[in-house]
Amino acid sequence: MDQLTIAGRTFRSRLMVGTGKFASNQQMAATIAASGAEIVTVALRRVNVDDQQDDLLNHIDRNKYLLLPNTSGARDAEEAIRLARLARAAGCEPWVKLEVTPDPYYLLPDPIETLKAAEVLVKEGFIVLPYINADPVLAKHLQEVGVATVMPLGAPIGTNKGLKTRDNVAIIIEQAIVPVVVDAGLGAPSHAAEAMELGADAVLVNTAMAVAGNPTMMAEAFGKAVEAGRMGYLAGLGKQRNQAEASSPLTGFLREE
């Protein structure tokens, strides 16, 4: 399988995995291992002074996985920039999954605040991976300010609805000069395969694995789907047509013609 390159760094896996919503840190660790992912996302929150939990980082081997902190919870550019800087201060490499989601119901990303924050963070030396709606024009603007990828959503976060934004994601892929990572809403391995067949460079999955009856098996299934989808894309898919085209010869039938 061909490698994924983001900001000059290469990865064998084209599946990124989120670490939220797992029943335990042990289950999270087993799931990311089963997925084959090399990039895992984390969030930054206030330390709970009264009830300190088992530290997530005890379960993630930093030599094996690139920790990609997100700016989840940010409602505007200022909050996102603050979170990105804090993540760097907490010892992360300067990679950030930039998300600005002021709307608590659909968690749709704010395009204007995302672009503002991206511009500032790129100037500060961050490798910025912005979470966006599947808007090809916004994707272009973000690429112009120097983001490392664009991460269009398939459907709102945690909805498991799949690649509802397919046509716009296709345009983003067609025009992109950076890797396109389909993020959010992919609820089944087939959704991930669909995004990869379309030409996405990678996908990010969290909820679908975390809420599965068997998260590690689901992670493995997503890993295979991503590889299958990528291979299908590289192999070159046949064109769709309306009329049937026989696969078997149209001569030598056992009848008089």
């Binding site: 997530l56 980082l57 989840s72």
Partner: peptide, 10 residues
């Protein structure tokens, strides 16, 4: 003072 750490997230 604000003190933050990493938690699970997507």
């Amino acid at each position: 003072i604000e003190i933050v750490n990493f938690v699970g997230g997507g």
